[in-house]
Structures are given as C-alpha cells and as structure tokens.
Amino acid sequence: MTMNSLKDLYLDQLQDLYSACKQSMPVVTEMGRVAKSRELAEALIAGNEGIARGMEHLATLCSQHGVDPTGEHCKGMEGLVTEARKHALQADFGDDDVRDAAIITQYQRLTHYAIAGYGCVRSFANRLDLDADGGVLQECLESTRDGDKHMTRIAEGGVNQKAANG
C-alpha cells in the first residue's frame, strides 16, 4: 500500500498491530505453560484473552474501512517473539523463579510494543476525526496498560524477591 495520507498510514498500522497481536499469542501461551507462579500463569492466560479481544477490535476496525486485517506482517513483533523464546523459554534456567522473572520481562517487552502501537493508531484516529475508532482504540490501550501494570505488581509482589533469593 502506498502511503499518501494519514488515513493510509492509519490503516497500515491497524494491520501491523493485528499482526503483532497474532504473533504474540503463541509465545504468551508457551510462557504461561512453564511459569512456576500460579499467579503469573493466570495473568498470562488473562493477557492472551486481552490480546484476542484487541485482535477482534482491530479486525472490526479494518473491516469497517475495507481492509484485510491480515494485510501486513509485523517484523518488530517477530523479533520480540524470537527474543521472548530465546530468553524466557530456551535459556538454561537453574531456578524456576528466575525463569518467572524472565517471563515477566519478555511479556512486558511484548506489551510495551502493543502500547506504543495502540497509542499511535488511537492518535491517528483522533486526528482523522474517527471518534468511534478512537474510543475503541483507547479501550484497547487502557486494557493493555492495565495488563502491564498487573505484571509489574506480580514481579514486585514476589517473583523478583524469590528470584533474588534463588
């Protein structure tokens, strides 16, 4: 797609964000399966549910604007997923609590990418006077931020302490 307008960029970035979300789900599932902390595993399940809801919203927005949500492949998230697998799943851990700390680190990196993406497309929608789109994207942004804050609470509430004592 040739970018001739902010609207073109907006649609491109909706597709890119959809791709990012789709790519992140399998690795989040994998991290949830190996997490020692039950609270962390449950938060990762909830995170995937939030990602899926975000994808539904993105697909709806794309459809309303006549574009296929799968029209892009997000190379940025591809790299983050590779890093998450390398540093949270494939690394050699002698302590499960340390792995849990690594899982939170990698999950938050994935999440911060999504926060940036949602913030950008929400700003584009607002500038383009797409108020309904902006409202939906604001909800997605807030939900993603809430998930990130929840992971910080899990880390600071015990996972990091257990990893430090390991």
Rank of each mutant, 00 (worst) to 15 (best):
Q13V: 02
R38H: 08
M25C: 08
A59V: 07
E56N: 13
I103V: 13
G94V: 07
C62V: 01
L11E: 00
I104A: 05
A41R: 00
L9S: 05
K7W: 01
A91M: 12
E49Q: 13
K75Q: 15
D8M: 03
E56L: 10
K86R: 14
N48L: 05
V67K: 00
F93A: 07
L11Q: 01
L89K: 08
R99P: 09
Q23N: 07
E49L: 04
M25G: 04
N4I: 02
A102E: 11
S37F: 02
T29M: 04
D100K: 04
M55C: 14
L14R: 01
P26L: 02
H73G: 06
D100M: 04
V98N: 08
R33K: 15
V28S: 04
A59F: 08
T60N: 12
L58T: 12
Q23C: 09
T29Q: 11
S37I: 01
E49C: 01
M25V: 04
Q13K: 10
L58W: 04
S19G: 11
M55V: 11
A102G: 12
H65Q: 13
T2D: 15
M31S: 06
A43P: 05
Q15W: 03
M3W: 12
E49P: 02
E49S: 09
A59S: 15
H87Y: 05
L9I: 09
A84T: 11
T105V: 12
G50W: 06
A35T: 00
D97F: 03
M77P: 08
R38N: 03
G54Y: 05
H65P: 07
E78T: 15
A59E: 13
E49A: 09
H87F: 05
A84P: 14
D16H: 11
T29Y: 04
L44Q: 05
K86F: 03
G71L: 06
I45D: 13
T70I: 08
G47Q: 11
S24G: 13
R38K: 14
G47K: 10
V98A: 12
M77H: 10
E78M: 12
E83T: 10
V67E: 00
A88H: 02
Y10I: 00
T2A: 14
A52M: 14
Y10P: 07
L58A: 11
M25T: 06
G76M: 07
E78Y: 09
G66M: 06
I104V: 15
K36R: 15
L14N: 02
A43I: 00
P69A: 05
H87V: 09
E42G: 06
R38Q: 10
L58E: 08
L6D: 04
H57Q: 14
G50N: 11
L61F: 03
R53H: 11
G47M: 07
R99K: 10
A35W: 00
L61G: 02
F93H: 10
S37Y: 01
T82P: 06
T70P: 08
V81S: 10
L11F: 00
G71D: 06
N48G: 13
H57C: 13
G71K: 05
A35Y: 00
Y10R: 01
